[in-house]
Simulated scan of single mutants.
Amino acid sequence: MKHSDGFDARRLRPRTTGNWRLRLGAGVAALFATFGVLLSMAGIATFLGRPASLGPLNESPAAASIVVISGLLLLSFGVMLWRRCRRRLRRTSDLSMAPHLMKKRD
C-alpha cells in the first residue's frame, strides 16, 4: 500500500550545516593572494628601476627582494588556502570518499 500523504523526502537526509565559514575562508584566501601579487609587483618594480611604490620600505635592492619573497609566500599561501576551502565546499557530506577519488575540478 502506498502512503504519499505527508511524506517529505527531505526529512530522511541529514541536515547540513551552513558553510559560511568556508566561504569566508575562501574570500580571505583570495585577499591574501591579491595582496601577495601586489607586493610582488611592487618589489619587482623596484628592481626594474621604477620609483619605490612602498616608500622607504623597498628603496634598496635587498629590501625589494624581501618584499618580492614575502609577496610570493603570501600568494602561495593564499592559493593553497583558497583551493582547500573550495575543495571542502564542493565535497558532499553524504559520502565518505577519499579526496583523490573525487573529480578534479579545482
Rank of each mutant, 00 (worst) to 15 (best):
K104V: 05
R88V: 12
R105T: 06
G6Y: 09
H3P: 09
M41D: 08
P99S: 07
S65F: 08
A29P: 00
H3I: 12
F77E: 00
P51A: 12
R90V: 02
V79L: 15
L81K: 13
A45C: 02
G36F: 01
P99M: 06
S65Q: 12
A33V: 00
P61E: 00
S60K: 09
V37Y: 03
V68E: 04
T92Y: 02
R15H: 04
D5F: 10
R21F: 15
N58G: 09
R13P: 00
M97K: 00
T92W: 01
R50I: 07
S65C: 01
G36D: 12
N58E: 10
L89R: 00
C85G: 05
V28W: 11
M41R: 00
P14W: 08
V67A: 00
R23Y: 07
R11N: 04
L73S: 14
R105M: 03
R23F: 04
P51D: 13
M41Q: 14
V28K: 08
R84W: 08
I66H: 09
G71L: 05
G27P: 08
R87S: 10
S40T: 14
V37L: 13
S70A: 04
I66A: 01
T92N: 09
V28P: 04
S70H: 03
V28C: 10
F35G: 08
M41V: 15
T16P: 00
R13D: 00
T46D: 10
N19T: 13
T46C: 10
R10G: 15
A33Q: 07
H3L: 13
L81C: 07
L22C: 10
A45M: 11
A98Q: 10
N19C: 04
T16G: 08
L89E: 04
L54C: 05
I69N: 12
L81T: 10
S96L: 00
P14K: 11
L31R: 06
R87C: 02
M1R: 09
G6Q: 02
T17G: 01
M80L: 05
S96D: 11
T34P: 07
P51Q: 06
T46A: 15
M97F: 00
F47Y: 01
W20D: 09
D94I: 14
P51T: 05
V68M: 13
F7L: 03
L81M: 04
G25E: 07
P51M: 11
